[in-house]
Nucleic acid binder design. Structure first.
Lengths: 142, 142
DNA sequence: ACTGATTTGAAAGTAGTTTTCATTGGAGAT
DNA sequence: ATCTCCAATGAAAACTACTTTCAAATCAGT
């Protein structure tokens, strides 16, 4: 049974002698409301609509906190800004180099081949990233 | 038939009204002499052994040049510094999160599955990165 | 409400590039 | 061989995207 993100976070906070604040609540709620990969700045913009006084640093720190308690992952597509995604939301990605659109994919056969190869060199997999760059359907017709 | 990197570079330079310099020659030679992924600083160190007056910026610019004429690729493993690798030297990577060692792999079956998936959404692949993070054989016995 | 630790936000600091600019140097014309 | 002009170089400054610091504000157990 999957727990509500806010529950998990609240337990983590209590267990670590940390405090529940209005800012954290707003940021976490906005983060889990969105359905895509978010940059810090993007989440900040969402959050500022609810409470304009919240600054970049607090959003940044809250995302680090979500990472710490396993509720979010940080990804670095190519170079530049990092994106955050909800835990459990992980697929692999095809990224359009023209418009930046991200198309998720998943294939158990690829994962299995990957495991085979790892086993051959006795490598214990913790995580992976598989990103395909190219031109999406829409951008090809332009 | 594969051409010598220096040949390709020299043609590119001439065609673009750019100049052949001692610095470029040294940097390119050192880059292609090495057999691994190099950080800018690492290549700078190699280069400084031959000609100490060469600075970071020139190495940086020469690597950008190699990228431009397709002789090298820039990769960003995780976060932090970027690594450069010779073109044609591309494999996928298993990266040890303890010691940082990089184990190359390659599997046509994975590439084919990747192509299949791309075709389904009419995505035209230009490049990809497939990185597996985990613990290498040696680090597991410690 | 009191107290003491945790959070917050602004500002400063950091890492890794990337750009600027005065000077140097390569190469075709003389 | 020298001139001349434009590209290349190196030092320093600028830039980007974080990450840390610190004084003031906030939270939560007495």
């Amino acid at each position: 049974m999957v727990q509500e993100p806010l529950e998990v976070l609240n337990r983590y906070l209590t267990e670590h002698g940390m405090k529940h604040t209005r800012q954290r609540e707003i940021i976490v709620e906005e983060f889990f409301k969105s359905n895509k990969h978010l940059q810090i700045e993007e989440l900040l913009n969402q959050v500022k609509k609810v409470e304009p006084s919240i600054g970049y640093v607090t959003v940044y720190r809250t995302l680090m906190l979500l990472k710490e308690c396993g509720l979010a992952h940080q990804r670095h597509f190519g170079e530049g800004k990092s994106l955050f995604e909800k835990a459990g939301d992980h697929h692999d990605h095809m990224i359009c180099i023209k418009c930046g659109s991200i198309h998720e994919f998943e294939d158990d056969r690829i994962e299995k081949l990957q495991d085979q190869i790892a086993k051959r060199i006795n490598f214990k997999i913790v995580s992976h990233r598989h990103e395909v760059y190219g031109c999406c359907s829409r951008c090809q017709n332009e």
